[in-house]
């Protein structure tokens, strides 16, 4: 069967493996920012993002999660040295 000569595509990036819920948030961040992060959406739990953008993405993700999650009290107290 004749076939157009096609190069195997290769791109640099960071593979992210996470829960589908986290991935949904990442998709939303990507969409809201005009698709600046994602290189390739692979499946429910995996995607590839641009490497230079990873730190920024993590930061935005943390911010969103902070709003949705109650911060638990830190169990810092030490029985021998209270306070």
């Amino acid at each position: 069967m004749p076939r157009a000569v096609k190069e195997i595509h290769q791109s640099t990036g960071v593979l992210i493996e996470c829960d589908p819920s986290i991935k949904a948030i990442i998709l939303k961040i990507d969409k809201d920012s005009g698709h600046g992060y994602i290189v390739e959406d692979l499946d429910d739990e995996t995607l590839v993002v641009k490497e230079p953008k990873l730190a920024e993405l993590k930061l935005r993700l943390e911010k969103i999660l902070e709003r949705t999650q109650m911060l638990e009290k830190d169990e810092e107290s030490d029985p021998e040295n209270p306070g």
Binding site: R3, K6, E7, I8, H9, Q10, S11, T12, G13, V14, L15, I16, E17, C18, D19, I22, V39, E40, V48, E51, L54, K58, L61, E62, L65
Partner: peptide, 19 residues
Amino acid sequence: ERMRTTTGFLFKDFHSTQE
């Protein structure tokens, strides 16, 4: 960690399943 990250390279658009 909310996610596991690995820096590397994505290969796609292979010509055939065999390849």
